[in-house]
Design a protein around this nucleic acid. Structure first.
Lengths: 208, 208
DNA sequence: GGGTTTTGGTTGAATACCCAATCAACTTTG
DNA sequence: CAAAGTTGATTGGGTATTCAACCAAAACCC
């Protein structure tokens, strides 16, 4: 048996179940059954259920780049296009499950209110890194955005729109609310780009 | 004992606990203790825990107008101002509890993924009514918004921003992300108003 | 190389608690 | 007297977690 193979399997199943059903609704026994592992093994690798949860959040942290950001970056070179490629990536995932799943981090963020400070901290870190990735793209956009634009705040806003849109789509059981939200965000970006263009000294071409 | 007094008390406590701790994390026994009621009484009024949850969601549905929308309406006559008064109302609630609570409907929306279709439907209804309230204000804004504006979609976007902002503020333990999100939304509205103004036939005054 | 110990991992029955829900008896109200 | 509401002990099943025993393979030693 490959080293860490069992631990990996537990982590993978836990991740899936926490995502599908939530933390409290997922019993340890279910994780054991689906991972085909006995309880002793699980508690050999993880102190308790909450540690297991934290391990999944650390996993998300590590895989944010390769799994989430990378596809958007290889989808297009256009920095602002990447923002919307990312949103489209989430849209695909949302649609694939019939609008039942959503964002695993966001779900946990609202299920585990307080009382789990370390979990909250990890969720926060996940959000921070996500937004930092988007912020980098917004920096790359250079003067396509107005110079006074707070790119960190705008990146967080993209996350806001994504999470809020997903929430409504899940409630509605339809992609429409998510699509609507993204469309509004697009309009906002268009307005920003237009404002930036009108401010820019037109070195060439100019408008249209 | 006033008629329905016990039922009301149960409902009130359940509402509070579901909001503070979530649905699964709230035990029926806790509700009983805090409401000072014995189990038989609870199950006399409510078939089971899920029915109790649905009753709280129906309560939110009924009290959306008086508790949520009314304060914003009496805060200002300005229709767009009302949108941001509403957001500020949520901000106050969010800050009061040190960014731990958030929106009770939103929390449930993400905790109860699927598997509770009737609950999901009630959550959806809550969102619909909320957005319908905001949409009415946006209608009242008349030509301050561009004529092509989809006011229903824009109202849903306001909800998107609110829920997404709350989520991040809870994760961060700070009002800053919420404030940032609202500021971006404000900028979007400003852009829309500016676009509407430049389209409008200037019957008087004009700019400045 | 043969034997022994150590290490890293696995087993699964057992534990003690907590959960939502029941119901027959009881009390209060009209 | 009936209807509405309340009681609380009880049920049966689920919960996370523990632990002593077990196992396989590597490491060590003579």
């Amino acid at each position: 048996m490959a080293p860490g193979e069992t631990r990996e399997r537990i982590l993978e199943v836990a991740r899936r179940l926490f995502h599908e059903q939530g933390y409290h609704a997922t019993g340890v026994s279910t994780i054991l059954r689906e991972a085909d592992v006995r309880s002793g093994s699980l508690y050999y690798f993880f102190e308790n259920k909450e540690e297991l949860l934290k391990a999944t959040l650390r996993w998300y942290l590590e895989h944010l780049g390769p799994i989430v950001l990378a596809p958007a970056e290889q989808a297009t070179d256009d920095p602002i296009g990447r923002v919307f490629a990312l949103l489209d990536w989430y849209r695909t995932g949302l649609g694939r499950a019939g609008c039942t799943l959503g964002c695993p981090i966001g779900n946990l963020a609202l299920e585990l209110g307080d009382g789990h400070p370390e979990v909250r901290a990890l969720i926060h870190e996940n959000f921070q890194n996500w937004a930092a990735g988007v912020e980098r793209w917004l920096q790359d956009a250079g003067d396509r955005l107005p110079p006074w634009t707070d790119r960190a705040a705008l990146a967080r806003f993209v996350l806001t729109v994504m999470e809020g849109g997903i929430m409504q789509s899940r409630a509605a059981g339809s992609l429409a609310p998510f699509d609507d939200s993204v469309r509004q965000l697009r309009a906002y970006f268009d307005a920003l780009e237009r404002a930036a263009a009108s401010q820019r000294p037109r070195t060439e071409g100019g408008s249209a």
